[in-house]
Nucleic acid binder design. Structure first.
Lengths: 343, 343
DNA sequence: CTGAAAGCGCTAACAT
DNA sequence: ATGTTAGCGCTTTCAG
């Protein structure tokens, strides 16, 4: 006859009440060390583990946070960005002994049902939302609920939400200034999708930096979709205009751009300087190695978790965390490389 | 005065008991359509959603499945394999209205605590374990618990576990036969880590196929670590031995190998035929396009979820699902490409 | 320092 | 067809 292994049973075996067992399990005060020892012995020998659902119900806290990635099309995982972000978030949740729930969804009929699952009470304590597009209804939806959430990235209506982002605009501006400083005079731009704030911010930042240097892209602008292929296609098209420099809004697209340059029989950085954004593709994977505006993806993820726990704990004045980026100068821009950042 | 929005409250507003509300929420029988209509109206206007933890506790089923990836080092996400697998698993869990919890952990002191969190009662209904290494203690650990689980890949002691894998051995053998059929006589092998069963199976399958064709790799063998860099390094070393063909155990490593070939001033497939395994890198991303043994990653993920739900439902005789692979012949092997599979 | 008791919100018999 | 009731295993006052 095997009875359920719960607090009551552990208490029975240790000769104490379930309240006392609960106290030792949760490291509560007011337990004699002798009692504590005995209870712990029973826990060890029985392998008792508290029941998560029961605990959630009684304490009104689940210990799990959700990560919501809408429009999670296949291509999304071809970019190392999300893997890195997930890694950062996962490691931060592990650090605080929480569990990570992943909500991925593309367009489709299931979308609204998943959206509503995310805000199911008693499922997660809060959620991190990322990869939203401009005007994404998801964020409005979240605001209409009482579920704590933080956004990774900059939502359109950022004012009222907690979010953590990198300074895309400043980073792109730095890229422009760097290119200008190298004496380049016919810059081109391969932008990221304009339905994302990161895409818009990087584009604006680049144009702003150019303007400061008295330069302009004129018609040398193309927009990619984050994929390597799109970067290659965009570069191939732009080459007709004979640019002597190009800022590519993501590493992945830059890899494609480098390829297009090579396929056109041109040389980088000799014929054209390339600077990209992300700092996520291992430098040695390309030749020349990419000069890139590095964003601290892992830190962003970790910070998002910390911020979310604060919101869950009751923080109420929207906080806006913005991480700076750092320009890693390597060979693709044609400048003399500086030391690797952090080296 | 706002009262908690629960079954009781919804029932109060609709003028019925909480059991009745529970029935309509769960689509149970024995509810008059008039009552059902009234209750649904209240639910719609209040935005009531059942409390997940309470439901889990009462029903002894959480509706969440865990995905466990040990040794989730950063490099893990540089390979599109895991992204694809997660996508497949996520879409399958969405289909059955379940939630996906992600447990990633590298080596470290936290490892055992995460391992034990995975088997916390009342947290997940079952777990999918993948990316284990040979002799991984995690699987033994899982077997010691009553938590339902399935393995993606082939555990050493597969006999007693449910698992879904692809036929790595047969796929690699096909690659060998294909290369032999092309008239290549000095084949080389860039193997995957020998502490993984996939690595071992692919190696053995290739050697087996070679033997059937009366060929041998002799000393033309190197082992990579799945990374693109390792493939490049391995190829660079092997080139000294003048192979006229190489089987690379993963697409990522093959991309690196192609690069090494180019950097050595050699030509693929002219000087050397390349066949890889995975079929996960978009063909147009490399030139020449890779001939590859394609494994159905997404299907594997979906199938793992289905199998797990069966185990959760009580299935008890270990089942071993093995998906076949398919050779996609493109340009890197030097053969005349066939039509794209599935085209 | 420890125990008793009242829920948390839901499901699932069992009544009616 | 609907209501009543007894838990699920835990946390958390409140007594002692």
């Amino acid at each position: 006859m095997t009875r359920p292994l719960n607090l009551e049973e552990v208490g029975r075996r240790a000769g104490v009440s379930r309240s006392t067992v609960s106290r030792v399990v949760n490291g509560g005060p007011n337990v004699s060390s002798e009692t504590k020892r005995r209870v712990e012995a029973v826990i060890a020998e029985t392998g008792y583990r508290p029941h998560a659902a029961a605990r959630s119900l009684a304490s009104n806290s689940t210990g799990v946070i959700g990560l919501v990635i809408p429009s999670a099309v296949a291509t999304l995982f071809d970019d190392p960005y999300f893997g890195r972000l997930i890694l950062g978030i996962s490691s931060a949740t592990n650090d605080v002994s929480m569990t990570l729930a992943l909500f991925l969804f593309g367009a489709g009929p299931d979308e609204s049902s998943i959206i509503s699952r995310v805000v199911t009470p008693g499922l997660v304590d809060g959620v991190i939302v990322t990869a939203t597009t401009r005007g994404d209804p998801l964020i409005d939806h979240m605001q209409g609920t009482s579920m704590p959430f933080v956004v990774v990235g900059r939502p359109d209506n950022a004012g009222s939400t907690f979010c953590v982002d990198v300074d895309n605009r400043a980073g792109a501006r730095t890229a422009a200034l760097h290119l200008a400083g190298l004496g380049r005079r016919r810059p081109a731009l391969i932008a990221a999708p304009s339905n994302t704030t990161a895409g818009v911010d990087r584009r604006n930042g680049f144009l702003e930096g150019l303007a400061e240097a008295g330069l302009s892209v004129e018609s040398r602008v193309a927009e990619g979709d984050w994929s390597q292929e799109s970067g290659r296609d965009a570069m191939a098209r732009l080459l007709a205009d004979r640019p002597d420099a190009v800022f590519v809004a993501s590493d992945r697209m830059a890899v494609g751009a480098l390829r297009a340059i090579r396929e056109a029989g041109l040389h980088c950085p000799g014929d054209i300087s390339v600077v990209s954004f992300d700092g996520i593709v291992p430098p040695d994977l390309t030749s020349p190695r990419l000069t890139s505006v590095v964003q601290p993806v892992t830190e962003v993820g970790e910070r998002a978790v910390r911020l979310l726990t604060a919101v869950i704990a009751g923080a109420s004045t929207p906080e806006h965390v913005v991480f700076p980026t750092e320009l890693a100068v390597r060979e693709s821009c044609g400048a003399t490389p500086t030391a690797e950042p952090g080296a």
